[in-house]
Structures are given as structure tokens and as C-alpha cells.
């Protein structure tokens, strides 16, 4: 089921884009990421609207009153909070949806990249099972070189004046763009639990992305980088972006 619904369409979409763009797998990943961003934009947009509504709700006097009034009665607090969500037309789980959609895409894309850039017989044989009949077999083997990197291997830039030292350029860019994206798109939260969670997201999310970018194939890191950049652009396009939130130690607006 995974292969049928996720992996095979991804592999073949990548191959078709690769073929169309003149055998450049890096550009194929960039175009593919843009398509994924475009397809999931309605969900992302809904999530952003939902987040903003929640932010406004949490600033309201009613919310603050409820929090204070039922601070010692956890069950009642939950009931009243849910009521407030219902009245404001907010689905508290809507924020998770884009993330849940992203996960199978990340897993699928990673598998697609690793299999498409097979460097051993069993991998290549496995890859052959995923190719649709209408996709040309003469594309094999795919060209895995893109700029200075091999998309099937973890990326390191080796400079002549720094022999033996590989600089993980993509990892650094992924961490920076993840941090910027999280900072810009995570709404300011009230003090306490929500605020701590928000702060933790700002720290752990870029670190997680950086770890993955550093450890796994450069093709996946390229996806993260392009996805982050497009995410920022998309958010900016909705007119909600506040660049001042990027200033360190400054309370978010």
C-alpha cells in the first residue's frame, strides 16, 4: 500500500521531471518540492489561519478568565477550553495536519532518492520494480551530481585551502532556514506551558532538521532547504509575516 500510494508515484514523478529537465536530479527535487508545497498549500493556509485564530483567542479576556477560574480543576478547564474552541470555530488538531502530511512525504522522498540513486545491484533491482511502464528505462543510471554535491550521499563541501575538512553547507542552511521558518510561523504564546512549548519548537525543530540533513542523503537535505524557503515565501505571501520576530531575545509580536 505504501509503495502503491506514496513511493511509486514519487519515484515516477521525480523520473518524469528528471527526464523533462534534461537529466538533472537536483533540479528535479527542487521542482518536485515546489509541486508538493503547491499541492499542500490549502492545508498549510488553513493551519496558518487556525493558528492565528487561536492566538487571538488566547489573548482574549474570556480565555484568560477561564484559565484562572479553573486552574485547579483540570477536567473542567479542558471542557471550558474546548467550548471556547468550538465557539471560535477552531479545530485544535488542525495545526498537526500539515506536519502529519509532511512525514510520509519526507519518508517517501528519502526512499525515492535512495532508490533512484542506487549504487548497488540489489538497490537497483528493487528500484526497477517501482518504475511505471511509460517511464523510459534509458534514464538509468541517474546523474546524481548537482552543483558540488552527490545527492545520494551526505553533503560536505571540501575546499582546496581546507584539505580533509568537509563543510556541511546544506546542513547549515537547513538549520538556519528551519529556525527562521519556525520563528516566523510559530505564533507568540502566553507565558507558561504554551510559551515553553513554543520555545522548544524553535530550538528542537531546526536541530532535528539539521541532524537529518547532516546524516542522510544530500537529496533529502535539498528537499528540506527548498521546502523551508518556499514555506517562508508562502507565509509571507499570506501577509501575516512579521520579520521583527527574527530579532533574538525580542518578545514576539
Amino acid at each position: 500500500m505504501w509503495d502503491l500510494l506514496i513511493l511509486n508515484p514519487m519515484i515516477n514523478a521525480l523520473l518524469l521531471i528528471y527526464d523533462f529537465l534534461g537529466d538533472n536530479f537536483g533540479v528535479a527535487i527542487i521542482i518536485f518540492t515546489a509541486l508538493i508545497r503547491l499541492i499542500t498549500f490549502p492545508l498549510t493556509y488553513r493551519q496558518q489561519v487556525g493558528t492565528q485564530k487561536m492566538q487571538e483567542l488566547q489573548k482574549s479576556k474570556r480565555w484568560q478568565d477561564v484559565q484562572k477560574k479553573y486552574a485547579k480543576d483540570k477536567q473542567k478547564l479542558q471542557e471550558e477550553t474546548l467550548k471556547l474552541y468550538q465557539e471560535a470555530g477552531i479545530n485544535p488538531l488542525s495545526g498537526c495536519l500539515p506536519l502529519l502530511i509532511q512525514l510520509p512525504i519526507i519518508f517517501g522522498l528519502y526512499q525515492a532518492i535512495i532508490q533512484a540513486l542506487a549504487d548497488a545491484p540489489l538497490q537497483l533491482l528493487e528500484f526497477s520494480k517501482h518504475i511505471y511502464g511509460f517511464v523510459s528505462s534509458t534514464l538509468i543510471p541517474l546523474n546524481s551530481q548537482f552543483l558540488w554535491m552527490d545527492l545520494g550521499q551526505p553533503e560536505r563541501l571540501e575546499l582546496e585551502f581546507l584539505p580533509g575538512i568537509g563543510i556541511p553547507v546544506l546542513t547549515i542552511l537547513v538549520v538556519i532556514t528551519s529556525w527562521i521558518q519556525t520563528k516566523l510561523t510559530t505564533p507568540p504564546s502566553p507565558e507558561g506551558q504554551g510559551g515553553q512549548m513554543s520555545q522548544m519548537m524553535t530550538i528542537y525543530s531546526p536541530l532535528l532538521m539539521g541532524y537529518l540533513a547532516y546524516t542522510f542523503a544530500a537529496g533529502l537535505a535539498l528537499y528540506f532547504l527548498v521546502s523551508n524557503l518556499l514555506g517562508i515565501v508562502q507565509y509571507a505571501a499570506t501577509g501575516r509575516i512579521n520579520w521583527r520576530n527574527l530579532i533574538p531575545f525580542r518578545k514576539q509580536e
Binding site: 519526507i106 519518508f107 515553553q196 532535528l208 533529502l220
Partner: peptide
């Protein structure tokens, strides 16, 4: 929250590592 975030990191990392299993086991 902290353990949950770390667990998520481990799960994602493990799943991706699992995806590349053929590099660890027989490759031909």
C-alpha cells in the same frame, strides 16, 4: 514535552535509517 520531542527525533531518525537498510545489509 522534552522527552516527547526527543522521542519524535529518534522515531524520525530511525525510520529514515530503516529506509536505507539495504546499505547496511546485503547490497548484492
Amino acid at each position: 514535552r522534552l522527552p516527547v520531542a526527543l522521542l519524535a527525533l529518534v522515531v524520525v531518525g530511525s525510520v529514515l535509517a530503516g529506509c536505507s537498510g539495504s546499505r547496511i545489509g546485503a547490497s548484492s
